[in-house]
Design a protein around this nucleic acid. Structure first.
Lengths: 197, 197
DNA sequence: CCAGATACGGAACAATGTTCCGTTTATCAA
DNA sequence: TTGATAAACGGAACATTGTTCCGTATCTGG
């Protein structure tokens, strides 16, 4: 989208880039607070821009939703390599799964939108899977090789299972997340228990 | 709601009753054509009444959706006894399951609304189950007693399984339903194959 | 047929997505 | 530095849709 193509005549203006970022950031915050049906004006105001600016960058309301979703998928997936670099394999895995839970927890309102059949969101499930599956597969493989966890669990299965876990947990209260984390730990222990040798 | 309570002072006016019925009928038609997000005016017009009339009977948009849903659940459930009376047990069961598939197929848009967390719809899943489960349980028990099908399948499990089958099928085209029916037949054969003795 | 209550229709209001265009601002070359 | 120009901006204006209100029409019992 905003990527520079070598042959392009003019570069995108700096303020435009700034605003696109501010909008995604504001949208994320507002969606979390009011849900995905939050008024567009609210988002524009929160980002400190007019609605015109918002619509130039995201012609449809759904484009904003898609934008926020992808950005958060990217952010979550990007943490895996960092965790892998700074922690032992088993620890990295468990930390990322917790991070993944947080991602899922903020997607309450989205879940129903995603499966609502609206073609605007049809690409998201694929985006979700193609970004998360390899990342988790890596963490799992590394941890398995280190003997920290079993090696017979498919990354996708785990993504789905934990996704269901976290999305049925409490909304945003401390308690809800605590419960989810307890269940997550249980599952991680399950991975450890069945480890080879 | 519209039920007569003995102590009530006045009976509901005849035209009011007529309109309530027309509205539910119109809403059903419009929802099927445009989905549950169809404009309220469209429904009022289709029913030949003003929006004021619509809102007097169904104060919230969601009340209309709930009304239509319940009415269709009732209609579908009510056919079971008739089928049981006019067909042999196995046949009655298979016919009703087909009828149930048709019910599910028209609920495409609703599915996501039901699970959207909107409290207006929170009572519907219960209504669904408490109406369909006993009805199907009867059909199953009778067919099992007659030796037409196996007797170790729980009504609720079957409702869910077929619900998933039918809701992933085609929308309204002939082909989509055909596919669903083939899958349904497969499942019914499964019930027959495992019958006792 | 009348009186009164009941119900009706649709204009008016409010909230929100989307478009349009006059104004402002970043960029670049002289 | 400065001025020309294209890019981007802001927010009023428009369109759609849920909801409310109230003057008018209709039904019902006597």
């Amino acid at each position: 989208m905003t990527t520079e193509t070598p042959g392009t005549k003019k570069a995108t203006r700096a303020d435009a880039l700034r605003n696109e970022d501010a909008l995604l950031e504001a949208a994320k915050a507002v969606f979390t607070r009011l849900g995905v049906d939050a008024p567009v004006r609210e988002i524009a105001a929160h980002a400190g821009v007019g609605v015109g600016t918002l619509y130039r960058r995201f012609p449809k309301r759904s484009d904003l939703v898609v934008g926020v979703f992808k950005r958060e998928v990217d952010a979550c997936a990007a943490e895996a390599p960092k965790l892998a670099k700074n922690h032992p394999p088993g620890e990295a895995l468990s930390r990322w799964l917790k991070r993944y839970c947080q991602f899922i927890a903020t997607k309450k309102g989205l879940a129903s939108a995603l499966h609502s059949g609206d073609p605007a969101f049809s690409a998201l499930p694929d985006y979700f899977r193609s970004n998360f599956e390899p990342v988790l597969a890596d963490l799992l493989a590394t941890a398995a090789k280190a003997g920290d966890v079993r090696d017979d669990i498919a990354a996708y299965d785990l993504l789905r299972a934990i996704g269901n876990l976290a999305s049925s947990g409490g909304q945003d209260g401390e308690d809800g997340m605590d419960h989810t984390y307890r269940m997550l730990d249980l599952m991680i222990d399950g991975l450890r228990f069945g480890k080879p040798r």
